[in-house]
Design a protein around this nucleic acid. Sequence first.
RNA 1: GGGCUGGUGGUCUAGUGGUAUGACGUUCGCUUGACAGGCGAAAGGUCGCCGGUUCAAUUCCGGCUCAGCCCACCA
Length: 809
Amino acid sequence: MALEKKPNFKEIESKSNKSKRFASSRLSPKPNFKEIESRWQKWWLDKKIFKFDPKSKKSIFANDTPPPTISGRLHIGHALNYTLFDFVARYKRLAGFNVFYPIGWDDNGQPTERYVEKKLGIKSKDMPRSKFNKIVINELKDAEKLVKEDSVAFGMSYDWSTLYKTISPQSIKAAQTSFLDLHKKDLVYRAEEPMLWCPHCQTVLSQADVEDKQRATKLNYIKFKANKKDILIATTRPELLPACVAIFVHPDDKRYKKLIGKKATVPLFDYQIPIKASKDIDLEFGTGILMVCTFGDKADIEKWKKHKLPLKIIVTKEGKLNKLAGKYKGLTLAEARKKILKYLTAEKLLVKQEPLQQTVGVCWRCHEAVEFLVTKQWMINLIDYKKEFIKQGRKIKWHPKFFRARYEDWINNLGWDWVVSRQRHFGVPIPVWYCKKCNEAVVADLKNLPVDPETDKPKKKCKCGSKDFEPEHDVFDTWMTSSLTPEIALSWPDKKLSSKFFPMDLRSSGHDIIRTWAFYTIVKAFYHFKKIPWKHAMINGMVLDPKGRPMHKSLGNVVSPRNMIEKYSSDAMRYWASNVSLGEDIPFQEKELARGMKILIKLWNVSRFVELHLKTKPKKSKLKTIDQWILGRLHQTLEQYQKYFDNYQPSKARKEIEMFFLHEFADFYLEMVKHRLYGDEKANEVKYTLYQCLLGILKMWAPFIPHITEEIYQQTFKSAEKDKSIHISAFPKKTKIDKKAVKLGKLTVEAVAAIRKYKADNNMSLGKEIEKLTLYHPKVSELKKVADDIKGTMRIKELHLKKGKLKVK
RNA sequence: GGGCUGGUGGUCUAGUGGUAUGACGUUCGCUUGACAGGCGAAAGGUCGCCGGUUCAAUUCCGGCUCAGCCCACCA
């Protein structure tokens, strides 16, 4: 071969007239992804490419971005979730929207508290709350850096100037304003009732904070005395014997009918309890007798309320037994269970044990079993407005749709109002004081927010005239703040919410927090503004390991996004994320990243090829059918791509562009025009088409793989296109599609493919010249119009076209 | 027990009222003057099971089954 394998770029560059060239430099033979990615990430930040422009006349697309918790590196689930909505944000910019894309740090929760305590070796409870809050904000700078670093490495296009923090004075003010507004609207109240309690975290929990956990336990058959006879009672919680307040049997149960109304004696503790009847007792379970303790579970609470039973509290806030448990005082529940069972066995009161699969409620933070304790808490009314929340949910478009059902299921099954106070130290203080004289709760004034009742004092007297107050020590549930992310991002309450921004357009989150983040956000927007918080909710699935199991440190199957970026590239990781069907849980497949790499390299090489033939921006000239075919297909692809994106299906949009790029543009069009490019120095119509197609292709790829597309754009198109960055440019304008050319192009593809197969079947190289070839095709008269293209592409000197079934001879 | 998803070539997936998309893997061939992390081609599926509607079902309807998730129950 006379030609060099690799072109000498330096020589070519020096030969060409630089002033005429539209590209300032050429693409190198091999891209250095790491270098390219970090360079553009830095450039986007430095040049504030994604800064929101309030003066723009474009219509606004507002995102309610999930603020990551600040407690370490982001995991692969973040990478999936975050890049999914970044695709949408980047798409919307190219589609002509003024994208409001804020970001926040969620740093008012327990993960952050633990992180800071551990790091500094301090305890939140040892100091005034405001001091600890300040320490958190200060100390978190390093931790935030990690999360920001990861976000930037993922290629997120946030507007960093909007950054908010959920423990900042502004967020505290927002949460407290929310509370005061609800207070004014009579939607909050204080109640003393049995509620879910986490003995480990030592705080009350809401229904949403409790998760189910399967565990194996034992059903213990224990002898009670009734009417001087032994009766057997089956229980999983013998440690609650000292809290027993009644036993229940079914009114029609022949075995126990006589006992109803009589008394039974609790073993070991030797006190009497009434025997009552209730129709909901299952005759089959255990011995058909139910023991009610205060409180073992929800059923106990129901019976206790309905039958006005006495209260025997034996469990302390630490999860230990108190003096009512006699000699078991001070033991944890688990210790007490062991000991009591031992004594029961010794006394021959434990008749038998059966294994039982049991589901228990556990705290979502620490995964320890929860208990029921009577405490006094602030509550937000939810139960009275369930119907409204369902109505609001129906005004929101859920993607995919079926997650609305999950939202509604949750509301329909809600049994309790929202407990918003937490017995924690770190967090947003509840802006309330209690009058020491009359016990009246005095709430702060809006104008004084944010306040910390532990350090601030009420600015007015109590109704009773007293000035002596006890501060509220509790803080809010973190969701009290998180449920206000759209409002906080829009600087509420300092600024009014403009209808241009609120409701926001999009919230994106995992399906695991529909019952919390999504639900509470809808509640707040409704209570405060009678509005929905966003028009669309994009719900994505969880990342599982390749075998379909959840990723857990304990299973050793956690995939780190940083390692993946290191091994492949950020764009390759985003490519992986773009594969996922919205809402589906996805097993992690590393080969998808490898596939991503291939696509990136392909795009690079295609761009190199195109660029080799472009010296200046080509002007439009008379196009051949094949050119009109590919341009038509480009616009058809764009149309379909936009349809998918507008319907929040980025993975489908990506498939659309990928198929067009690989299997039409690269596989066929490029091969079909080589003979024209090398045959005719000018071939202006080809160059024009290549330019338009590649630019359009790059723009369609841009939301998915922003780094490589920016690099190619900057090197190849920037000097001729006016847009500063490909990511703030616009998709090609709609043009008329030549449908006849599109059809004919498809026939040409068919013909070329048939001849390729012919060459492959005959062990010929594709480049081999063929003297004479006959192609049979049903639409031979059409094909005659593109005979030159077929000949040129397949290197045929003499091509005969004959009517007939597709065949090559 | 209620609800929601999904069951498509070896693996993972798209999609549709007329026997099916792509990727990975497998096999074969090949320097198409962009690309060997490449190019071209081939083999491979009774679209979970049963019944119904229809000229026609993988696609619609009903039932079942398996898997996953959410919720309730959980003495």
